[in-house]
């Protein structure tokens, strides 16, 4: 069974733009997907600086896929599709 890794960026820009709320995924993901999805925080994914467009925080990385303007629904949708 493949596991999916979800990384939440908790750097300043992402945190202010909404990743503080994304931390709820820590409870939601195991409830919904069990151990098929591993979730972890990241101190900074360096996406806000490298991405030119700065208005796309918060960022979440699902395996190698970057989700910009991430919301709980958006992250859950992506996981559903991948599974």
């Amino acid at each position: 069974m493949n596991t999916i890794t979800v990384k939440l960026c908790l750097g300043t820009a992402c945190y202010v733009m909404g990743s503080s709320h994304l931390q709820d995924l820590v409870d939601i993901i195991p409830d919904r997907f069990g151990d098929r999805v591993v979730i972890a925080g990241h101190n900074c994914l360096n996406l806000c600086t490298s991405n030119g467009e700065h208005a796309e925080s918060p960022y979440v990385k699902i395996d190698d896929e970057i989700i910009s303007n991430a919301t709980i629904e958006k992250v859950l949708d992506h996981i559903e599709k991948k599974l």
Binding site: L10, T12, V26, C44
Partner: peptide, 26 residues
């Protein structure tokens, strides 16, 4: 600083361990 930690991790080859997501205030 997140970027600062990443720079030090890169230059000194010491990994920054993923944060434990606990409810530690705002």
């Amino acid at each position: 600083g997140g970027t600062t930690a990443n720079i030090l991790a890169r230059e000194l080859h010491i990994p920054v361990e993923a944060q434990i997501l606990t409810n530690a205030g705002s």
